[in-house]
Write a protein that binds this DNA or RNA. Sequence first.
DNA 1: ATCCAATTGCGAATGGTTCGCAATTGCAAA
DNA 2: TTTGCAATTGCGAACCATTCGCAATTGGAT
Lengths: 142, 142
Amino acid sequence: MSFPDSLRKTKSRLKVWEILSSSTTPLTARQIAQKADGGNEEKAVWLSSVYRALEAFEKAQAVNRTLLKDSPEALYSLSETGHHHYAICMNCKSRTELEGCPFGEHEHLHTVDEDFMVVGHVVEVFGYCKDCRKKMQKDAKK
Amino acid sequence: MSFPDSLRKTKSRLKVWEILSSSTTPLTARQIAQKADGGNEEKAVWLSSVYRALEAFEKAQAVNRTLLKDSPEALYSLSETGHHHYAICMNCKSRTELEGCPFGEHEHLHTVDEDFMVVGHVVEVFGYCKDCRKKMQKDAKK
DNA sequence: ATCCAATTGCGAATGGTTCGCAATTGCAAA
DNA sequence: TTTGCAATTGCGAACCATTCGCAATTGGAT
């Protein structure tokens, strides 16, 4: 995932991006702001600007916002790419991509359990594709 | 799902419970308070008491709190039973049951694709449980 | 019926997030 | 490269869902 083309590369946004890129865990806006001014007295990026940068990234689908139930603070992390699920035919094993994700575009996930930080998920739907159903109906007649 | 035995049956809690029971959709605390005093001037249940009732229900695992990203207000609903999926900790492999099914309680799964006959589905959420998160944070400090 | 811990009414405080506005800054066009 | 201007930021104040504090009330065990 790289810095979204659609956004101006400003000092604050680049800083926020760099911090998120180099973090292995999701961070709160406050943590990002703190890391930005690395212990210095004066702030490198003002907290409200961190929020605005994150909002812009989120709209550009480059960043994920996550709310866990045990804290009122949102957690932010870079979005992963390529997110799809499949319907799998139990007969011929063919896969057809589901349109969208039952969780919504990443939302809802945080509702899972107050103690659980969600990183990803698997969704698979099983059944029979149209072709196989036809064949199976024919075969059944024999 | 019935009113938790462990909790005192007070007027406010019974009211909140009744409202949640008779609602087909999740409600915000404010909505519950409004429904409680059904248009009357004086409040039947104070908002902070609604929050406290919901908190008690949630601790008793009788109510679900849900945070969606498009609103800062939490949604509350009675916990359902039957048909579940799991959140799996990538570190310790522990499983915790997901509350509800992302496809909705009553499988409109056949809507997935007209050509696909759905027989079942798998949903698994991956991430880190609270304990492992704590451990990982400690380890990170070393 | 009595007693006491649990609960509520009520308002004030908290704290994460958003907003407003003047000053600054990317960056497209000249 | 310089210019022009819309986008962005610094900064603080405002917002608002939720939590807290405390005195008054109440459920329910004895």
